[in-house]
Amino acid sequence: MEFSDSLRALGTKISNQAEAIGTEEATKNAFVMPFISSILGYDVFDPLEVVPEFTADVGTKRGEKIDYAIMRESEVQILIECKASRSALSLENASQLYRYFGVTNARIAALTNGIVWQFYTDLDAPNRMDSKPFLVFDLSDIDEGLIPEVQKLSKDNFDLESIISTAEELKYVGALKREIAAQFRDPSDEFVRFVATRVYDGVFTQRVREQFSLLVGKAAKQFLTDQVNDRLKVALGAGTQVPISQPSSETSVDSGAVAERDLDRDTEIETTLEELEGYQIVKAIACAEVKPQRVTHRDAKSYFAILLDDNNRKPIARLHFNSARQKYLGLFDEDKNETRHPIASLEEIYLFADEIRGAVRRYI
């Protein structure tokens, strides 16, 4: 199995089992050990490779243990501290890692709850673990761009020099991406002022701040939608043109206008970037049968509907992304009965391309 496929398979397992895992020991057995063995490729039952409950007395601290130490050529290379899957990871969780990092040969330390893995090194000061991770990898929401970096930590590809040389860039690029995403979801006052003062020449009063808080949030959503649409246009333009049939009685629908209208609605419904990305994937698949502008969407409180011709009697698919733990792709049979399929990542939508195109063909 390819490295990326192994990661996705573990991500799917985590999504399916996360609700049933409550303790730290259960997290180790269900999530952490499979990551060490099936992803990183180390034998968890070979004490020459993986040492559980690793002990290295530090100063007056005696008998403290780190959960796992990964060994290479009889030297510690990676230290791993585990927390329960429902625990949030914080610097307070990493106190033992700090102490152990400086008294072993390890250059890599990992703090994990089995779902999110935070990897640390010593960029700021030699032999002293940094306070911020250089790599954060979430198995419930896999970032494809980080897969090669995780692979460098595996037994067959372990390359400490390469890891350390790219760690600083990864550390700050990752932190910046997370901060930008947070600002796009919920712009802070500082971000609103920073953007607004570049387009508004008046005095930045409280009323102006409140007005631009809404406008900046709306502009951010529309910007992201435009970026996704541009990527789709490039992808479609690079592909082979497929003959498309369209009954003359049907009216073309401007999906861009529909998307903008949905994003601008002042309701309790929140259209997320992930839903829009999923929509664009379904749309790209459906374009093998119909023109892109005929594939539209409508958001609802409980699901995100993808329709043909903006007609709710012609459902193509539904995205059930409201749960933080498990996402579902809803597909319809000939009688328009919906079946929900669990997916671990947006890329898995492509596995259902035949069903999506079949749904479109039934309407045309």
Results as ranks from 00 to 15, higher is better:
Asp5Glu: 14
Leu10Phe: 00
Gln17Asn: 14
Glu19Ser: 14
Ala20Phe: 13
Ala20Met: 13
Glu25Phe: 15
Thr27Cys: 08
Lys28Gly: 08
Ser37Trp: 10
Val50His: 02
Thr55Gln: 14
Gly59Thr: 01
Arg62Ser: 10
Lys65Ile: 03
Ala69Ile: 02
Met71His: 05
Glu73Gly: 03
Ile80Trp: 01
Ala84Asn: 07
Leu97Glu: 01
Tyr98Leu: 10
Gly102Asp: 07
Thr104Asn: 09
Ile108Cys: 05
Ala110Arg: 01
Leu111Cys: 01
Trp117Thr: 03
Met129Thr: 05
Asp130His: 04
Ser131Asp: 15
Phe137Ser: 01
Leu139Gln: 01
Ser140Gln: 12
Ser140Val: 05
Asp141Gln: 09
Asp143Met: 06
Gln151Thr: 07
Leu153Val: 06
Ser154Pro: 06
Asn157Trp: 10
Asp159Ile: 03
Asp159Ser: 12
Ile164Phe: 10
Ser165Phe: 08
Thr166Asn: 06
Ala167Thr: 00
Leu170Asp: 02
Tyr172Lys: 04
Val173Phe: 08
Arg178Lys: 10
Gln183Thr: 04
Arg185Ile: 08
Pro187Cys: 00
Ser188Lys: 03
Ser188Thr: 15
Phe191Ala: 11
Phe191Ile: 10
Arg193Cys: 01
Phe194Cys: 06
Thr197Phe: 04
Arg198Cys: 11
Phe204Ala: 09
Phe204His: 12
Val208Leu: 10
Phe212Ala: 13
Val216His: 04
Gly217Arg: 14
Gly217Asn: 11
Lys218Phe: 13
Ala219Leu: 07
Ala220Ile: 07
Ala220Thr: 05
Phe223Asn: 09
Gln227Pro: 00
Val228Trp: 11
Arg231His: 07
Lys233Thr: 06
Ala235Val: 00
Leu236Thr: 02
Ser245Tyr: 15
Gly256Pro: 05
Ala257Gly: 13
Arg261Lys: 10
Arg261Met: 11
Arg261Glu: 11
Asp262Phe: 06
Leu263Met: 11
Asp264Tyr: 12
Glu275Ile: 07
Glu289Cys: 11
Thr296Arg: 04
Asp299Leu: 13
Tyr303Ser: 08
Phe304Gln: 02
Ala305Tyr: 08
Leu308Arg: 07
Ile316Ala: 03
Ala317Asn: 11
Lys327Thr: 05
Leu331Met: 02
Glu334Gln: 13
Asp335Cys: 06
Asp335Ala: 12
Lys336Arg: 07
His341Gly: 02
Ala344Glu: 04
Ser345Cys: 15
Leu346Thr: 03
Glu347Gln: 14
Tyr350Asp: 13
Tyr350Ser: 13
Phe352His: 15
Asp354Cys: 00
Glu355Arg: 11
Ala359Thr: 12
Val360Asn: 03
Arg361Phe: 07
Arg362Thr: 04
Ile364Asn: 04
